[in-house]
Design a protein around this nucleic acid. Structure first.
Lengths: 158, 158
DNA sequence: ACTGAAATGGCGCGACC
DNA sequence: GGTCGCGCCATTTCAGT
């Protein structure tokens, strides 16, 4: 699916604030309500829009500590990777997990109430998963940037 | 500020879906609309709730590639770090940036339309910032987990 | 076929108990 | 925290171009 510059403007606004006044936003992009809603529905159906969520302040919500944890898996069979991923998916503290290039296999971002919580996570949750052969943890000292908004741009040749 | 188990249930739902039927959610947590809205407003004012945003599908929005980029800064003066952070904050591709412990100083998550976009970002944006002395880039091969919802729990002694 | 304008049902939110 | 009630917004339908 392609989206035009109007979609791009709508998506930019919605990414910033899921609760913008729809009519006002429609007007701002030069649309009346009904085509505006049609576009939104289409974007939802196409799966471009994945959902509308509420963001909490990490500190104030009680999770001031973030850590990036790199994990290496030995003898990477498909089954073993699948099991690791299934185990990871169940852990609430894991905000992100990606299969990576490089010497480690997975990169995780983990949150906790304190540094001990990170250690506890690594020791009791990660090391107990079959095949985990190496773990490298780096603590975040301070968050500089955290965004959820992708830099959507209009496809070049439109 | 403390929140009780009712707040926790509300926050859990709102993190999952910012557009839940408010009256329905209020009822589900055993509240009538009014006190429900009062709690929400309070959570917003306290800054626990940071905002309501729309999440896009990274692939479908045209940014299928993620990379974690570690950056080392030489002669880390406060001014130099501040300048680096200011420069980073302006770059749309940077979804996350944290000051870190360990041999590198910053950990970034960067998105791009293709691998060349990551290389271009590193070469033209990162290396040109004063003081950047080392960069290590790892590509994400596949996203396993991506969440925005913190595992909020009721404070222990309530 | 896609856009624009009007109607309505339901929600958000304040006043008051 | 609950009840009442108003105003406004999200959403659909319908006509126009």
């Amino acid at each position: 699916m392609r989206f035009d510059r109007t979609d791009v403007r709508i998506l930019a606004e919605l990414q910033r604030d899921a609760r913008v006044r729809a009519n006002e936003l429609a007007e701002r992009v030069g649309l009346s309500p009904s085509p505006f809603y049609r576009r939104i529905r289409l974007l939802e159906e196409e799966g471009i829009i994945e959902g509308y969520v509420t963001l909490l302040n990490q500190e104030k919500a009680g999770f001031p500590v973030s850590a990036y944890v790199q994990v290496a898996i030995e003898k990477k069979t498909e089954v073993r990777l699948a099991r690791f991923e299934a185990a990871i998916a169940k852990l609430d503290e894991v905000m992100e997990c990606n299969l990576m290039t490089g010497s480690f296999d997975y990169m995780l971002r983990v949150v906790a109430a304190d540094i001990a919580g990170i250690e506890r996570f690594v020791m009791t949750q990660l090391t107990t998963i079959e095949g985990v052969s190496d773990i490298s943890t780096s603590l975040a000292l301070r968050r500089v940037v955290y965004k959820t908004a992708l830099p959507v741009r209009e496809p070049s040749g439109s």
